[in-house]
Write a protein that binds this DNA or RNA. Structure first.
Lengths: 227, 227
DNA sequence: GATGTTGTTTATCGCCTGATCACCAACTAT
DNA sequence: ATAGTTGGTGATCAGGCGATAAACAACATC
């Protein structure tokens, strides 16, 4: 019906390089999918981007490919290589290191965008979540356990036991879920992240020390676990 | 094309009462939606039930109404009135009560079905999750705090402070997320729920006691919090 | 055994979805 | 100016969706 009439009037917007434009699409698609879930329509997405729907297919072969790129940016973005060093820097008190780490880490992942994408992906059963959990165990929790052992004067046998890891997970999840309650469920929470983290660390460090002082070490379950 | 030919051969299945049949539909729909998410199609659902799709609309006015019933069964199912009494029964050691409670509670909610529905609903932003979180705070966490205070010889002023609640949340979430890792992400975990709970409780109780012994009570933030 | 009621199916409607194609518009190089 | 390449659009397709209507099957009652 309508003829293709030049849509002059928004040519003000200067052209970006192809790569930049693509990146912009991915970034805004991330925002979009974090709200609508991955079942959000390509038409709605295109409208949000201010373009028409078929154009998406010039930049991404399929919706699924676009989604994969969204995952990549979300999951790779957060990890700061400096964190491992921070956690293991024994010239500083452990509590201080943990405080600083969890402040920084939660600054990155405590956002509606990140947390929602994380759970949407998780519910889809994608490997990427399992991979991420593995990274958290290796790069964060294992180090924390190592430092706690050191602090408690215990032998630093190579890898942490499975039950030690689970204890570190309780700390990690306890803090993590504060963000979930706040940004996903939008439930009322104590609006002082720092205090929540500090209290969690106080409880954990005091409790961990005491539990491990009494621990019957050699008998603990070795690290291999089952799904 | 095809004429309505009698589909004899499975009339063995005796007729249930309308209410029972309805309940059966809801139960199996719960299972279905927990796997596929609430965007799962009514045709697939009907196939799973062994009936045709329009039949669903004889039992439920719309897909949304069916989903609402799914929520209701999932969210109301778990709460056992006895738990409040269990938690506050001071004739037994606190640690023992907490152990028993968390064993029982996680027996109910640690299932792929329950956890997935919980997060699908949460991501949709439904009030029901906020309501559930409120119930957990009132019926569980507030009691736990009260008992911990008692145990520590502290005054049992009516309601817990917001920061005390957050500490209890760290324990609750720490245990909860063990189930999330296992049943949603299907990540390898220590396959001994009892030990995970026991360790979490040991760390919490020891840590809590110590933190509260040193607490500057009157200065703590009062209970009202912000979203 | 005819009658009314309830359970179930076939066929279909209108809408929305991801994807494709042919075409136009804009910038670049010659 | 002209040809070529890239950015973007309108129209459209096949398939899936939730929902509805009309007909048929099975049972209960008299």
């Amino acid at each position: 019906m309508k003829k293709a009439v030049p849509k002059r009037a928004r040519t003000k917007q200067k052209r970006l390089s192809p790569d930049d434009r693509r990146r912009e699409f991915v970034a805004r698609a991330t925002e979009f999918f974090s709200e609508e879930g991955f079942d959000g329509g390509t038409r709605d997405l295109a409208r949000r981007l201010g373009v028409t729907q078929p154009l998406l297919y010039r930049y991404f072969p399929s919706k699924d490919d676009l989604i994969k790129e969204v995952y990549r940016t979300v999951y790779l973005e957060p990890f700061d290589a400096g964190w491992e060093e921070l956690l293991t820097d024994r010239s500083r008190p452990l509590r201080e290191r943990l405080q600083e780490f969890y402040q920084a880490y939660t600054d990155v992942i405590f956002s509606r965008r990140w947390l929602r994408i994380y759970f949407y992906a998780g519910l889809k059963g994608l490997d990427i979540n399992r991979w991420y959990i593995g990274v958290v165990e290796d790069k964060i929790l294992a180090r924390i356990i190592g430092e706690c052992r050191y602090e408690a004067g215990l032998p630093e046998q190579g890898k942490p036991t499975a039950s030690e890891l689970e204890m570190a997970w309780v700390l990690q999840s306890g803090i993590f879920y504060y963000g979930v309650r706040k940004y996903i469920f939008e439930s009322p929470v104590l609006d002082d992240k720092k205090q929540v983290i500090d209290d969690a660390l106080d409880v954990f460090l005091a409790g961990f020390k005491q539990v491990f002082a009494a621990a019957d070490y050699p008998q603990r379950v070795p690290v291999k676990a089952v799904g």
